[in-house]
Simulated assay, not measured.
Amino acid sequence: MSKKYYIPFIFIAISVCIVSCKDDVLPKPKSYLSLNYPEPSYAQFDANCGYSFNYNTIGNVITEGDCNFKIEYPKLKATVYLNYKPVKNNIDLLLRDAQKLTYEHVIKADGISEQPYVNKFKNSYGMFYEVGGNAASQSQFYLTDSTKHFLVGSVYFYAKPNFDSVLPAAEYVKNDLRVLMESLKWK
């Protein structure tokens, strides 16, 4: 090999070695956090509005006025909204509105499961809805005594709906909603 070709060959060989020594950049796979939540501890909340209920103490109950409340879960970035309406010969309208609220999510939902709730001893009747998929609210319910009281509850997260990422928190809050429904007492 002549001297004329020897210098560029060394330069190219050294350049290739330097460039090839870098670590390859690979994209990271999508993943979600592994979240662990505390064991629920429940306390009674007396609304002084015709009903009382038990709530998980990691949540904060905030008065919204007119016997409406919200339970904020700062660690879960979620809020449960409780909307109360008195029954005044309008039970059909209240039931229709509660069902309409749930079925507005049908566009984004993979499915909606209805679970009737009946507690004759507490004179409490209603429906619990589980909304699957990327809907804004994964759990909703309504309860009534059919004559005086009507309560609607729904859960919303402070994040773009992504069912896989909110699933652990949604399950945790769903269990709290069931406790709230089962503990609710009309006055």
Rank of each mutant, 00 (worst) to 15 (best):
Leu76Met: 13
Tyr84Ile: 01
Ile112His: 04
Tyr103His: 12
Tyr73Asp: 06
Leu94Thr: 09
Pro116Ala: 07
Ile112Ala: 07
Ile91Trp: 06
Glu64Pro: 06
Asn68Ser: 15
Tyr129Phe: 15
Gly65Arg: 06
Tyr117Lys: 00
Ala78Tyr: 11
Leu76Ser: 04
Met127Gly: 05
Asp66Tyr: 10
Leu101Gly: 05
Met127His: 08
Tyr84Asp: 03
Glu114Ala: 03
Ala109Lys: 02
Tyr129Ala: 03
Lys77Trp: 12
Ala78Asp: 11
Leu93Ala: 12
Pro86Leu: 08
Ala109Phe: 07
Lys75Cys: 02
Asn134Gly: 11
Leu76Gly: 04
Gln138Cys: 09
Asn119Gly: 05
Asn68Tyr: 00
Gly133Lys: 06
Ile91Asn: 07
Asn119Leu: 11
Leu94Cys: 08
Lys88Pro: 05
Glu114Thr: 05
Cys67Thr: 08
Thr144Gly: 04
Asn83Glu: 14
Gly133Phe: 04
Ile91Ala: 02
Leu82Ser: 02
Val118Lys: 00
Gln115Gly: 05
Lys122Phe: 10
Ser139Gln: 11
Asn83Gly: 07
Gln140Gly: 07
Tyr84Trp: 05
Lys88Val: 14
Val106Trp: 03
Thr147Gln: 11
Glu114Phe: 01
Phe128Ser: 01
Lys108Ala: 15
Thr63Asn: 15
Leu94Tyr: 10
Asn89Val: 06
Leu101Ala: 15
Phe69Ser: 03
Phe141Pro: 02
Ala136Trp: 08
Glu72Asn: 13
Asn119Thr: 04
Asn83His: 11
Pro116Asp: 02
Gly126Ala: 03
Thr144Asn: 05
Asn134Cys: 10
Asn90Tyr: 09
Thr102Ala: 12
Gly132Val: 07
Tyr129Asp: 02
Lys100Met: 14
Cys67Gln: 09
Glu72Lys: 13
Asn89Ser: 15
Lys85Asn: 15
Phe128Asn: 03
Glu104Asp: 13
Ser139Trp: 07
Asp97Thr: 13
Tyr81Asn: 12
Lys120Gln: 10
Asp145Glu: 08
Met127Val: 12
Asn123Phe: 01
Ser124Phe: 00
Tyr117Val: 01
Leu101Ser: 14
Leu76Gln: 13
Lys85Thr: 11
Lys120Leu: 12
Phe69Gln: 03
Gln115Cys: 06
Tyr129Arg: 01
Tyr103Met: 07
Asn134Phe: 11
Leu143Met: 10
Leu76Arg: 01
Lys148Met: 06
Val106Ile: 15
Asp110Lys: 12
Leu94Arg: 04
Tyr103Ala: 06
Thr144Phe: 07
Tyr125Lys: 03
Glu104Ser: 12
Phe69Cys: 05
Ser113Leu: 14
Gln138Pro: 15
Ser124Glu: 00
Lys75Ala: 14
Lys120Ser: 12
Asp97His: 09
Gly111Asp: 13
Gly132Cys: 02
Tyr73Gln: 05
Tyr142His: 06
Tyr129Leu: 08
Tyr81Pro: 00
Ile91Gln: 06
Ser137Glu: 13
Tyr129His: 08
Leu94Ser: 07
Leu82Tyr: 02
Tyr142Ala: 04
Thr63Tyr: 08
Met127Cys: 08
Phe121Gly: 07
Leu82Phe: 08
Phe121Cys: 00
Ile107Met: 13
Ala136Ile: 13
Thr147Trp: 02
Phe121Trp: 05
Ala136Asp: 15
Leu93Glu: 15
Val131Cys: 05
Phe121Met: 10
Asn89Gly: 11
Gln99His: 09
Arg96Gln: 13
Lys108Ser: 14
Lys122Leu: 14
Gly133Met: 04
Thr147Asp: 10
Asn134Pro: 09
Gly126Tyr: 01
Ile107Cys: 03
Ala109Leu: 09
Lys148Asp: 13
Ser124Arg: 05
Gln140Trp: 01
Ser137Cys: 08
